[in-house]
Design a protein around this nucleic acid. Structure first.
Length: 227
DNA sequence: CACCAGGCAAGTA
DNA sequence: TACTTGCATGGT
């Protein structure tokens, strides 16, 4: 199904804000830790947790696998759900060593479908976290469907409330070239839109997308401001 | 005080 | 398959 607005929205957002330089992490390990820590949690709290890990030289999976559980929960406490997330991180580190010789290079040598299936088999890694890792650490052309993306699509009448994750992902895959750089920027732009604009102005007056919504009857300005 | 924030697993019907 | 519940901190 063709939905040209998907491409147009990206172009308008990119023209308005430009490159977003995501994911904010220096290494794949830091990226993957952030992906777990940010689950249902404000990014500002994740930054505190990552800062604690960095201060203690624990932004790598070998250190994290061997450190005491109480150390780890203490460091990531600000990110919430710290008992669960500590287990997820410990399990990730152990799996990486047991099945991939502790090498992220070996993990990311897997082809995209195999790597996605592998990540989804890890405790604490669901579709959103897996796809974040695929896109931002693995540079694969996989679109991330998170709470911001759902709100964005829903507000613009491009999906229903109960649309499945895979159907939302297909909406992007079917209307964009499979370019990881494009997927990267688009998702980051959607998050920025949700964070700093639509959050404070749900009606989206002055929103970078208002003009597009006005010109396209299939989108409809009425739905533009809907929840 | 309530409500939310870049989810997921486990249990139930 | 389609709900429901627990997990937890910090900001508004």
């Amino acid at each position: 199904m063709k939905t040209p607005a998907i491409q147009r929205f990206h172009d308008a957002l990119f023209a308005h804000w430009g490159e977003q330089h995501w994911w904010p992490a220096r290494t794949r390990a830091e990226m993957m830790l952030g992906a777990i820590l940010t689950q249902n949690t404000a990014w500002t709290n994740v930054e505190k947790a990552l800062s604690n890990l960095r201060k203690n030289g624990a932004l790598n999976l070998r250190t994290l696998e061997n450190c005491p559980q109480e150390k780890l929960t203490g460091w990531i406490r600000p990110a919430g759900y710290f008992n669960q997330k500590a287990d997820y991180i410990k399990a990730m580190a152990a799996t990486l060593r047991n099945r991939f010789d502790g090498s992220l290079d070996r993990l990311f040598a897997l082809d995209t479908p195999t790597l996605r299936h592998e990540l989804l088999s890890w405790k604490g890694i669901g579709p959103e976290t897996a796809d974040s890792i695929l896109l931002y650490a693995g540079k694969r052309p996989v679109f991330v469907i998170d709470a911001y993306t759902r709100r964005f699509l829903s507000r613009h009448g491009l999906c229903g409330e109960k649309t499945r994750y895979d159907d939302l992902a297909r909406l992007f895959a079917d209307n964009l070239p499979a370019d990881p750089r494009l997927f990267n920027e688009y998702h980051a732009l959607i998050v920025r839109l949700g964070k700093e604009h639509c959050k404070t102005k749900p009606e989206c007056t002055g929103c970078p997308l208002e003009g597009i919504a006005r010109k396209n009857p299939d989108i409809g300005l009425a739905k533009h401001g809907a929840v």
